Computed example of a mutant assay.
Amino acid sequence: MTLSIAVSGATGYAGGEVLRLLAIHPEVRVDTVTAHSSAGMRMGQLAPHLASVAELTVEETTVENLSRADVVFLALPHGASAEVAAQLPESTLVIDAGADHRLDQSRDWSRFYDTEYAGHWPYGLPELILADGTKQRERLRNTRRIAVPGCYPTASILALAPGMQAGLLDPEDVVIVAASGTSGAGKALKPHLLASEAMGSMSPYGVGGVHRHTPEIEQGIRWATEREAQVSFTPTLAPMPRGILATCTAHVAPGVGIEELREAYEGAYGQERYVRMLPEGQWPTTQSVLGSNHAHLQLALDQRSRRAIITAAIDNLAKGTAGGAIQSMNIALGLPEDLGLAQEGLAP
C-alpha cells in the first residue's frame, strides 16, 4: 500500500529537501504540499528542480489539509509546529523537523526559546548509542511522533557519543567549533546571507554559549553517558550552500589511547550504513557527503593536551534534516531503513 505524504513548509530548504529525497522512495506518494506566503502557487514555479511535485499547488498550512495524509512532515519555524501537531490525529505519523519537540527538559527549552514548552518526542537519530549500549532506533519503532534533530547536534552527537558511552571522554569539558553552509539559516532574505556578503568570507555567530543547539548537544551526550555535559559550542558560517564540518574535542580519561578510542567508534558504527569512520589518516570533507544521508568521521588524540579531536562532516539539509527524517520514518513504519536514501555524495 502506498502511503500518502504531506509536507508543510514545502517551499523552504528543509521541506524542499524532504521532497527531493522522497521522489525516489518506492512506498510513498506526495499528495499535499503546504506553506504560507506562497499558497496558491504551483510547486514548479517555486522549486523547478523538484519535477516529481511540479504540478502540485501549494495549499495553506491547516490541520484539515494535513490530516488527509498518512505521514506529515513539519518543516516549520520553532514555535509553529507544536500547535499544528497537537491537532493532528494520533494515528498520523508526524515528523517534526523543527525544534519544538527535541528537548526532554522544559528548563532547557525556556532558557533558549521564547515559546511555551511543547514536550518531548522520540528523537530521530537512529545511530545514537545510548548509555545502556542500545541504539536510538529502538525507540523509533512503531512511534507516531518523531522529533528530527538539529543539523549541528546531528554532527556533534554522532562525533561524541561513542567515546562518551564507553567512558573514554569527559563530558564536563567539551568544546565544539562547527562550520555550516548558508542554507542552515533558512530561505528568508537576510542581508548577511547575500552572496556579496557571505561568499569568500567566514564569520562566527551565536557566540558565547547562546546558540539554541547547545542544550540539544548536551542532551545527546547525557543520553550516551547518564552524566551531565558542559559544552562550549561556537558555530560559524562558511561560504558554501550546504554542509557542516564539526570539530569536537574533549579530555580523555587517564590512560586512554588512540586505539581504545578507535575501537569504541568502530564498535558503535562498524555496522551502520550511514555513519562511517574513515580509514586512519583520511579526514572528512563536506564535499564527500554532499546530497547524501552519510556522516563521515575521523579522530585523533592530542597527547600534549590529552584531548580527543573528533571531526564529523554531514550535509546539513540531508543527514542533518531531511535524510534523518526519512530514515526515522522508515523505522517507525517498519520499512527498510534505506528506502529513499540511496543517493551517494556528489563530487565535484
Score class of each variant (00 low, 15 high):
1 M>P: 05
1 M>K: 03
7 V>E: 03
7 V>R: 01
8 S>D: 07
10 A>Q: 00
14 A>L: 12
16 G>H: 01
17 E>N: 13
19 L>C: 08
23 A>I: 02
24 I>N: 15
30 V>E: 05
33 V>D: 04
34 T>D: 07
35 A>V: 05
36 H>P: 03
40 G>T: 09
44 G>V: 08
46 L>I: 11
46 L>S: 09
48 P>N: 10
49 H>L: 13
50 L>C: 04
50 L>P: 10
52 S>E: 10
59 E>K: 10
64 E>A: 14
67 S>K: 00
72 V>Q: 09
73 F>K: 08
75 A>D: 11
78 H>F: 15
83 E>A: 15
86 A>F: 08
103 L>H: 06
107 R>Q: 15
108 D>N: 13
109 W>M: 02
121 W>L: 01
123 Y>V: 06
125 L>V: 00
126 P>T: 06
127 E>A: 15
127 E>F: 05
131 A>Y: 04
136 Q>E: 06
136 Q>Y: 06
137 R>I: 03
138 E>V: 14
146 I>V: 12
148 V>M: 11
153 P>F: 07
154 T>D: 01
156 S>T: 13
159 A>Y: 10
159 A>R: 04
160 L>F: 08
162 P>F: 14
163 G>H: 06
167 G>P: 07
169 L>E: 04
169 L>I: 00
170 D>N: 12
172 E>F: 13
180 S>R: 08
181 G>C: 09
183 S>R: 13
184 G>M: 09
194 L>G: 09
196 S>H: 08
197 E>D: 04
197 E>N: 05
199 M>I: 15
200 G>I: 09
206 G>M: 04
208 G>P: 01
214 T>H: 09
218 E>F: 04
220 G>Q: 00
220 G>E: 06
221 I>K: 07
224 A>L: 02
226 E>N: 14
227 R>W: 02
235 P>W: 03
236 T>C: 14
238 A>K: 06
238 A>M: 12
241 P>K: 01
242 R>Y: 15
242 R>H: 15
244 I>L: 01
247 T>M: 13
247 T>S: 14
249 T>Y: 10
250 A>L: 01
252 V>S: 09
255 G>N: 04
256 V>R: 06
256 V>C: 11
257 G>T: 02
258 I>A: 14
259 E>H: 07
259 E>P: 00
261 L>F: 07
261 L>Y: 02
264 A>Q: 02
265 Y>M: 00
271 Q>T: 05
276 R>L: 02
278 L>F: 11
280 E>T: 12
280 E>N: 07
283 W>S: 13
286 T>Y: 05
289 V>I: 04
289 V>W: 01
290 L>D: 13
291 G>M: 02
293 N>T: 10
296 H>K: 04
298 Q>I: 00
300 A>P: 03
302 D>N: 14
305 S>A: 12
308 A>P: 02
309 I>W: 14
309 I>L: 15
309 I>A: 12
311 T>L: 11
311 T>N: 09
311 T>A: 14
314 I>Q: 01
317 L>F: 05
318 A>N: 12
319 K>L: 15
320 G>R: 07
322 A>F: 09
322 A>G: 00
328 S>G: 04
335 L>P: 00
337 E>F: 04
337 E>N: 02
338 D>M: 01
341 L>M: 08
343 Q>D: 13
346 L>R: 14
